[in-house]
Every structure is written in structure tokens, then in C-alpha cells.
């Protein structure tokens, strides 16, 4: 599974990292690290919840 954070939409609400800190890393400004990231094994459900929680719709999940 992979998650992709669209930097143009992300505005740093940090809901993703609050629910799945091992999936969504933050940069030094407090925004989700942009681009595609592999989801560590066992983190699929937190990854999905983190994506759902984003109020900007900045995260897409692909299998």
C-alpha cells in the first residue's frame, strides 16, 4: 500500500500524523512530507484513517 500527499492541497492540519504517526511524517514547518510513501506493514488501517481525516482531501491511498 502507498499513500500520496499532494503538497499543493496540504495545509498542515496534521490530522493524518495525529492518527498515523508512523505513516505520515511532518516536515520542519509541520506539513505532511509530500510525495508517495510506502505504508509500513501493519499500518494499513491507520494509513487509511489518516487519509480520511484530512480536511483538505490532500491524501490518496493506492494498493
Amino acid at each position: 500500500m502507498r499513500v500520496t500527499v499532494d503538497r499543493d492541497r496540504c495545509s498542515g492540519h496534521v490530522r493524518c500524523a495525529a492518527l498515523a504517526p508512523q505513516v505520515y511524517r511532518l516536515d520542519e514547518e509541520g506539513y505532511a512530507a509530500a510525495g508517495a510513501h510506502p505504508v509500513p506493514p501493519g499500518q494499513e488501517r491507520p494509513a487509511e484513517r489518516g487519509a480520511l481525516a484530512c480536511p483538505e482531501g490532500a491524501i490518496s491511498v493506492s494498493r
Binding site: 498542515g12 496534521v14 500524523a17 511532518l26 520542519e28 514547518e29 509541520g30 506539513y31
Partner: peptide
């Protein structure tokens, strides 16, 4: 905003 963000990040 970029200048201010680090003061307000989750670690801050």
C-alpha cells in the same frame, strides 16, 4: 507563512 510555520509546528 513559511517564516512563521516552524514556531507553530507540532514539536513546538
Amino acid at each position: 507563512r513559511r517564516m512563521l510555520n516552524p514556531y507553530f509546528s507540532p514539536p513546538a
